[in-house]
Computed example of a mutant assay.
Amino acid sequence: MQAIGLCRFSYPALGGFQVGHDTTEERIAYLYDEARLEERFSLLETVALPCLKAQTDPDFSMVFLIGDQFPAQHAKRLESLLSDLPQAVIHREPPRQHREVMKEVLNAARINPKEPCLQFRYDDDDAVSVDFIARLRRTVEDSAGLLKDQRSVAFDWPKGYIAEFGPDGIRAAEVFRPLNVAALAMYVKGGSPVTIMNFAHDKLPRFMPCVSLPDAAMFVRSHNGSNDSRQGLARHVEVAPLDAEGEALFRERFAIDADQVRRTFSA
């Protein structure tokens, strides 16, 4: 069963942001600001990509959506960072309505739309556990009876970490966040055009069954200077520097290396 991830990398969508702008030009200027992009690339390199490259089950597709006006030098940088992630493709689109373009991109990525698939959203500053794809597949197989008569079913792992990354390393706190974007996926039956982007992530259980597995920590949600998580949905979390044991856990569970974080954010 095909598994498809979709990451919006500074794509200037119409809608879809908690940070508001009056015009598309203002949004593009905000998203492509050099200082902001530098932070996003640092987080992509040290947080979001390592766990994808380390997945114990590498059988998944990953689409990175960027704008058709994305600066050429940064497009080359993105291509370089993705060069050793063979599952990744870069898709360019002009500014369009957020949900509509995301739904189209997901459906276009389906190899055989008549077959069921798995879908997940992925933010460029978050991480999932290195066994996320494997756990997702195993859980879907275990849920065969539930899937039989459903158009779609959500799968949620609500335990994880809120973390901040910088020159001093990683500050984090363990949290329980049901229906977080990270470590949330959806089964779609064959022949259905529905996608995970048809729904707000925190409202999925209103429209379909949702299987929640509150066992192992499965995500790292980044809080930083330029992400939407600092807006109204963000809740204050007291983070603390990781000790040696915590750094080892982040390295083994999420492929996030604290020394790499320190080097990258000190550059």
Rank of each mutant, 00 (worst) to 15 (best):
A3W: 02
C7R: 03
R8L: 04
F9P: 08
F9Y: 05
S10W: 01
G16E: 09
G16R: 09
V19K: 04
E25V: 02
R27A: 03
Y32I: 03
Y32M: 10
L37H: 04
E38V: 05
E45T: 00
T46G: 10
V47R: 02
A48D: 13
T56L: 15
D68Y: 07
D68V: 00
Q69D: 07
H74T: 01
H74E: 05
A75F: 01
A75R: 07
R77M: 14
P86S: 06
Q87C: 12
I90R: 01
K103E: 04
V105F: 02
A109I: 07
N112I: 10
E115Q: 15
L118V: 02
D131E: 15
R135T: 11
R151E: 15
K159D: 15
K159T: 13
G160L: 12
A163P: 14
D168T: 05
G169H: 03
N180P: 02
P193S: 09
N198C: 05
H201G: 03
L204A: 03
P205Q: 06
R206F: 12
D215T: 12
A217N: 10
H223C: 08
N224H: 00
S229R: 00
G232S: 14
H236I: 13
P241Y: 07
L242V: 09
E247D: 05
E247R: 06
R253M: 04
I256W: 09
A258I: 08
D259C: 02
D259K: 00
D259P: 10
R262V: 08
T264S: 13
